[in-house]
Write a protein that binds this DNA or RNA. Structure first.
Length: 917
DNA sequence: CGTCAGACTTAGAAAGTTAAAA
DNA sequence: TTTTAACTTTCTAAGTCTGACG
């Protein structure tokens, strides 16, 4: 298997020296030349420090399955079935190369697995980040005064745009893709591994978990009552409930775990064909052919869905199932719930089941969504509107003279005035769009005829004063204000879904303002008008009371009772009337949690198919059929570089691209087989990366470019529909975005598998952050450099110098002490008492430690200045990997996940220490 | 098929909080 | 205490992907 070809991943990073593990992952490594610059020096550091992480990469071993003895993984797996197992086996062995090799190898093909990759330099390992920094720059926005400054090198390119440049990286590797990455490496083990586990925090979150269960089942509306057990109790009670909850969870969890495993296993062998997408996702189900398998849990539903069609409830086996009650309104379920474990399964079923009931949808139309029933009863209070505009009466100056404006005119003028210190303010596109919309309010005959002759500073100054006033309020006043607001919003914050109280995500209607599109958005600056009740459609359970319209005298546009969708309300986006803005439940809700879990299961399931997928596209690199060839190359890029699919965009949107929409000018072939990518992706974030690709890919890209202009599509025969249709043929339910999730979670799993277990908690957290960073770089998650970054770095450098001065003094005194002389006066003139040489040495050692730590901090800061770690943590890395790692290493989960993240990932909290992606 | 409406996930920046340093 | 830097949460823009339609 693995062998050759196909796979191979690139390695990323890593290489460096020895150790590394090999994760291969493909991804980018970076290297970047640039780096050189500054970075360089650091490079090492980087490693050093983290040591942790960095090194990680490579692992040699592998082979064998990757597993290595040590690892628990293996063992674990065995024990546990499922989870882990998959991992390793599947993949293959990766090997790693040794360090040295690095360079050379590159191509080697062979190896299996190999990873080889080497990276060029040592650095590689390190991530881009460095790189990034190094090179590019990323500056951010520029203009503003305030801002900008900081960035060090700013200028660089882009000026304006945000883009930040970012990183460049290079990947090398060859082929490898993949495969397997073997997984694990592990080296150290040591520490913790063993069991430990413990529980992590627990508590808290647990509740959530339970929710999941519920999903389906249970409860009737009555919210309250029931719950105790299950659902989330409304907050209040919480305490009480907890304990119980936990237990539940536990059990549940286990169960769940198993389930998965099973399924997994099954598949694995068979793979391919069937594929199940693990998850139950709907789609997946549909697709799935399979049948059978497993059914249990997951699958079943899926199938079911279809089959069942209407009412049948299928539920099949599981007894429980909910009852669907078509009946009337609302359907309150009656349900019964039943047992726990099963319950969870059921839940799923239930969902599916429901679907039939479609009756739901009320009237109209589209079933939207995937057509499945998402809830049985839904109660909420609608949305809250921003307060009406309060005129301040401050006049702007037109050609130096104050001008009277109506309230509406003043409101819009204020929106613009307030943005004085942002980059938008000076952008011609922004100003033009603003002027057009404002002028419509002023009227053609208004005294104000040119925006350039307007002086908004009186309003801006007033704004600053107001801001300052607010800031100066006493703590009590602020608190009172806050409570007042809370009290007002409280009822809108919650919804009751199938008897469970859940948080609503965005119950506040967006206030009017000037559109702030990212990048060079053609519509930036346009007035986003105020949304009124008559713009809003409410979706709520049939038997629930219709929320009263908060604005007297007005009413909702429409009230629907569609249980095949999860939104509570929506309105058309004023900037783009054909699009909508939805009000959904918060991420902590069971509904969102379940789909989140399905997302990760789907990605995890890819582990079983990745090998054949890679074989397929490798074979098609040389296909005579151009479409096939383009699909193969595009899939390769998505797999290897974690690129986004790249849907088509309209002209009235920022000009950004994804894989399928890459332009000829976005890629450059660098002999013998490197490809340089440079394009603006989502949010106009720049993706700059140079990677080594397999020769057939290099050749194919050259062919796709031939005879075209820079602005032509590279993949002229392709679009996301075709690409996804193809992916679905390979694995039911598979789409392009799954690769990003797979890549991210796979990488995290890899990086955390080896246990760099030693060290205290803080050190372990650094290890985690490095893993997180690597994932963020792979996904190209960037952030603007903070305004004060440069100053902060300087400050740190200054402190380091100071410490070094102190060190010199200490050394002098040590010397003097050895000679029997008294210490010199301190630089500040103070007398210093004498100590014996040993004491001085101790002080010197301490001082050195301090210096080291500070240098490390400085380096880390510089290193992460353009890397956003949060996005991958929230959306891409399977939280179960983190939970398992925390349990293994006895790191409190709260150190990694914030409160909201804990709530969002409640469904993952019971993952066992041996969970493997 | 290609397009489009619709629904839902993913993003970075801004705003708000909290912890740490001065 | 006050300031500042770090960390969280909120906000809403910008993607992905599916099913219906012509």
């Amino acid at each position: 298997m693995a062998t050759e070809t196909v796979s191979k991943p690139v390695v990323e990073n890593g290489c460096e020296d020895d150790e590394e593990d090999g994760p291969i992952v493909f991804k980018r490594r970076s290297t970047v030349a640039s780096n050189s610059n500054q970075s360089k020096s650091n490079p090492q550091r980087s490693n050093a420090v983290p040591s942790t992480k960095v090194s990680p990469m490579r692992s040699p071993v592998t082979s064998a399955n990757g597993t290595t003895p040590s690892n628990r993984s293996s063992s674990v797996k065995s024990s546990v079935p499922s989870s882990s197992s998959k991992a390793s086996p599947a993949k293959s062995p990766l090997r790693n190369d040794t360090p040295s090799a690095v360079k050379n190898r590159s191509q080697s093909h062979k190896d299996q697995s190999e990873c080889k990759r080497e990276l060029e330099d040592s650095e590689d390992n390190r991530p881009l980040s460095f790189i990034m920094s190094a090179n590019s720059s990323r500056p951010n926005k520029a203009p503003n005064s305030s801002l900008k400054v900081s960035s060090p090198q700013p200028d660089k390119k882009n000026s304006g745009d945000r883009s930040l440049d970012r990183a460049k990286r290079i990947i090398k590797d060859e082929s490898d893709d993949e495969t397997p990455i073997a997984s694990m490496l592990r080296k150290k083990i040591g520490s913790g591994m063993s069991g430990s586990s413990k529980q992590v925090s627990n508590d808290e979150k647990k509740p959530l978990i339970r929710k999941l269960h519920l999903n389906g089942s249970i409860v009737k509306n009555e919210v309250t009552s029931s719950k105790v057990s299950g659902k989330r109790p409304l907050e209040k009670n919480s305490s009480a409930g907890e304990s119980s909850l936990k237990k539940h969870n536990v059990s549940a969890s286990t169960t769940s775990v198993k389930m998965k495993q099973d399924s997994v296993k099954t598949e694995s062998s068979g793979d391919k064909g069937k594929a199940l997408v693990t998850p139950k996702s709907t789609k997946a189900r549909q697709l799935s052919t399979r049948e059978e398998d497993t059914d249990d849990d997951d699958v079943p539903l899926a199938k079911r869905r279809k089959s069942e069609s209407s009412n049948s409830k299928i539920s099949s086996a599981k007894p429980k199932a909910v009852k669907v009650i078509p009946s009337s309104s609302a359907a309150k379920p009656k349900v019964t719930k039943v047992v726990s474990h099963t319950s969870r399964k059921m839940n799923k079923n239930s969902k599916k089941v429901m679907k039939d009931s479609k009756y739901s949808t009320s009237s109209k139309s589209l079933p939207s969504g995937d057509g499945q029933k998402k809830w049985t009863t839904l109660v909420h209070s609608g949305v809250i509107f921003p307060p009406p505009y309060q005129p301040h009466g401050i006049k702007i100056l037109y050609k130096g003279k104050p001008v009277d404006l109506t309230t509406e005119q003043e409101e819009v003028a204020t929106m613009f005035a307030v943005m004085k210190e942002t980059d938008y303010y000076t952008k011609p596109q922004f100003r033009e769009n603003f002027w057009n919309d404002w002028r419509a309010l002023l009227g053609k005959k208004h005294v104000i005829q040119k925006l350039e002759d307007c002086d908004f500073s009186p309003i801006y100054d007033w704004h600053l004063v107001e801001k300052e006033k607010k800031k100066q309020m006493s703590t009590e006043e602020k608190k009172a204000l806050k409570e007042e607001k809370l009290k007002q919003e409280e009822k809108y914050m919650w919804a009751v879904v199938d008897g469970v109280k859940e948080k609503v995500g965005n119950f506040r209607v967006e206030p009017p303002g000037l559109f702030r599109g990212r990048g060079e958005h053609p519509k930036m600056g346009k007035l986003k008008k105020r949304i009124r009740p008559c713009d809003i459609t409410i979706n709520i359970g049939k038997s629930a009371p219709i929320p009263e319209c908060p604005i007297p005298g007005e009413s909702w546009k429409e009230v629907k009772h569609d249980n095949t969708v999860t939104w509570l309300a929506f309105w058309n986006d004023p900037i783009n009337p054909r699009e909508f803005k939805y009000v959904f439940l918060a991420a902590s809700s069971a509904l969102k949690g379940l789909s989140d879990k399905e997302k990760y299961e789907k990605a995890r399931n890819l582990t079983h198919h990745i090998k054949s997928i890679r074989e397929t596209y490798t074979k098609n690199f040389t296909s005579k059929d151009v479409t096939k060839k383009q699909i193969a190359v595009a899939t390769y890029l998505i797999d290897k570089l974690a690129l986004r699919a790249g849907n088509e965009k309209d002209d009235d949107e920022a000009d950004t691209v994804g894989c399928c929409t890459l332009k000829v000018g976005n890629v450059e072939c660098i002999p013998p087989n490197q490809i340089k990518f440079d394009f603006l992706g989502k949010d106009s974030i720049r993706y700059e990366n140079t990677v080594v690709v397999e020769p057939p890919v290099y050749k194919a890209i050259g062919q796709f470019q031939a005879g075209k202009s820079k602005t032509d599509d590279l993949f002229d025969e392709l679009d996301t529909n075709k690409l996804n249709a193809h992916l679905k043929e390979l694995v039911p339910g598979l789409t392009a975005k799954v690769f990003r999730t797979y890549n991210a979670s796979f990488t995290l799993n890899q990086m955390l598998t080896d246990d760099n277990g030693d060290g205290d908690v803080n050190h372990k957290i650094v290890v985690y952050q490095q893993a997180n960073k690597k994932v963020a770089i792979i996904c190209n998650h960037q952030r603007a450099v903070s305004k004060s970054h440069g100053a902060q770095i300087e400050k740190l450098a200054g402190k380091i110098d100071e410490l070094k001065e102190g060190l010199k003094e200490l050394e002098t005194n040590l010397k003097r002490a050895k000679e029997g002389k008294p210490p010199l006066e301190g630089s500040d003139g103070k007398k210093i008492r004498s100590l014996d040489p040993n004491a001085w040495e101790k002080k010197i050692a301490q001082q050195n430690l301090k210096i080291k730590k500070m240098e490390l901090d400085k380096h880390t800061k510089e290193d992460l200045k353009t890397v956003a770690l949060g996005t991958s943590k929230i959306n891409y890395m399977d939280p179960r990997i983190t939970v398992a790692w925390c349990k293994r290493h006895e790191v409190p989960i709260e150190k990694i996940f914030t409160k909201t993240l804990l709530a969002k990932f409640a469904w993952a909290m019971d993952a066992g220490p041996d969970f493997r992606f």
